[in-house]
């Protein structure tokens, strides 16, 4: 899967590229409006990460261009402005998602994957990891073809972990993913631990191996 990162901050673009590359993504970078435009015209991407403010243009202009080219790619707007107007006009112009800077890489990965899943129509609403199978249309999780009843949060947590498989995800990233801004109230992340414990138990009861590892005090990692 090909991802284009349109971001004028090379440091950030490189970090994103490095993080995503380890997930079967092929990343290309464009650090200006012009290079981005060239790449968009010449290639097809599964997903484009779009920074709104570029030195020689705006991400919104690129969105319009994409629309006129009738490209079938997902777009996530990544903006430092966190402005509602930008968000609305971006989504109106056909962007799929909006992510405000600063963000967790795990969150970005999960969103890119969700968009790629949505964009591909050949049965990719199924996420598979070893013996775990998730149907994102039906919101069901099966282990060895046996359905596991998960709460909404446990379900979201599982998808988040699988989207970032083989990656260490910080507790902060998980907390923010699950609760949004509310995370800041809970400065001890006990509730994550509770969800994680329940999830692991339910999966184990269904006959799955334990793939979720705790990484020191940092966070969690789902690994085969």
């Amino acid at each position: 899967m090909k991802v284009l990162i349109v971001e004028d901050e090379t440091e950030l673009a490189q970090s994103i590229a490095k993080f995503l590359s380890s997930e079967s993504f092929i990343c290309e970078q464009a650090h200006s409006y012009d290079t981005a435009l060239d790449k968009i015209c010449m290639h097809d991407y599964d997903c484009i990460l779009l920074d709104i403010s570029l030195p020689d243009g705006t991400g919104l202009q690129l969105l319009e261009k994409l629309k006129s080219l009738k490209k079938n790619n997902g777009v996530i707007i990544v903006s430092a402005k966190n402005s509602i107007d930008d968000k609305i006009s971006g989504l109106n112009l056909g962007a799929d998602d909006y992510l405000a800077k600063p963000f967790h890489m795990a969150e970005l990965t999960a969103r890119v994957q969700a968009i790629v899943r949505r964009r591909n129509f050949n049965g990719s609403h199924i996420i598979e990891f070893k013996e775990i199978k998730i149907d994102t249309d039906a919101f069901t999780v099966k282990v060895l073809d046996r359905e596991v009843a998960l709460t909404r949060k446990e379900y979201e947590l599982l998808i988040f972990l699988i989207s970032n498989k083989n990656k260490v995800i910080s507790k902060n990233a998980i907390a923010e993913h699950l609760t949004g801004d509310v995370a800041e109230v809970m400065d001890n992340f006990d509730f994550i631990y509770a969800h994680m414990k329940n999830l692991k138990k339910k999966l184990a009861d269904a006959g799955s191996q334990d793939y979720i590892k705790t990484v020191y005090g940092l966070g969690y990692k789902l690994t085969a």
Partner: peptide, 9 residues
């Protein structure tokens, strides 16, 4: 926001 993002990444 941008340096914070870079730092985070």
């Amino acid at each position: 926001q941008t340096p914070l993002s870079i730092f985070q990444s």
